[in-house]
Design a protein around this nucleic acid. Structure first.
Lengths: 129, 129
DNA sequence: CAGCATCCATTTAGATACTG
DNA sequence: CAGTATCTAAATGGATGCTG
């Protein structure tokens, strides 16, 4: 079933959101967009919910970039008012697996990553007096 | 055996170089640096060879970022002249596997990615007249 | 609703010159 | 050798207002 996307899907501290591995289709939202599309087509406004802090411009840019790379297909749905749907192409879908691997790694090592960063920063501050 | 790093290790058209998946430790070189370190410690100047178009500043920034994330350890080797070695920490080493998965995906779908991009661009030009 | 245009602030990257 | 300092250019991101 395609549930509506939860607004807290990418909470600030969730590893998949602050994931140090970025899938570089041009911008910082692309990887998150792909995850949002994994359960089927979504509309533009639907995608804005879980991303929270993305602007229309940012989301548009992300989607265009993914479209250009052949990972996402954009479809204008006939009917009353504007309605556009985005969905993963087979190519885009094939990216879900490596992405899951990367996210699993990030989750597994999240604490280590944070700790390393903190102790490094603390040591730097030390040296700076 | 630790061979010297080949200058053509990341040739312009090699998928692992133009990899659309970027491991986001701050900059565009980080993922490539990690691959360069996979066979053991390397010196600063040694790392510049396979990266080719990186500047000293860019490489320094990358290495600092990786150090901060706890993926790379920097060691000043005592002796005549300056000598600094960089090597992967266990955490950094644990990243090689997900990275290999991502690179394999990129290689497998490289042609599709290029083709999608080209046909998309061609269609855009078409519309633009 | 789904954007594009415009303006502006911030971040990031490269070139170049210089240092312990 | 292994950087740092400085400047500049380019990319990125957000805010706001407008359009079919």
């Amino acid at each position: 079933m395609r549930q509506p996307l939860p607004a807290d899907m990418f909470d600030e501290l969730c590893p998949s959101s602050l994931n140090p591995i970025r899938f570089g289709f041009g911008d910082k939202w692309a990887a998150l967009v792909i995850r949002c599309l994994q359960d089927g087509p979504r509309r533009f406004s639907e995608l804005r919910v879980p991303l929270g802090r993305v602007t229309a411009k940012g989301l548009t840019r992300s989607l265009r970039s993914l479209e250009r790379g052949g990972l996402v297909r954009r479809t204008v749905v006939a009917g009353a008012g504007s309605r556009v749907e985005y969905e993963l192409t087979p190519l885009g879908r094939s990216m879900l697996a490596p992405m899951a691997v990367a996210c699993a790694w990030a989750e597994d090592h999240w604490d280590e990553l944070l700790e390393a960063r903190e102790s490094h920063d603390a040591a730097s501050l030390d040296r700076a007096g």
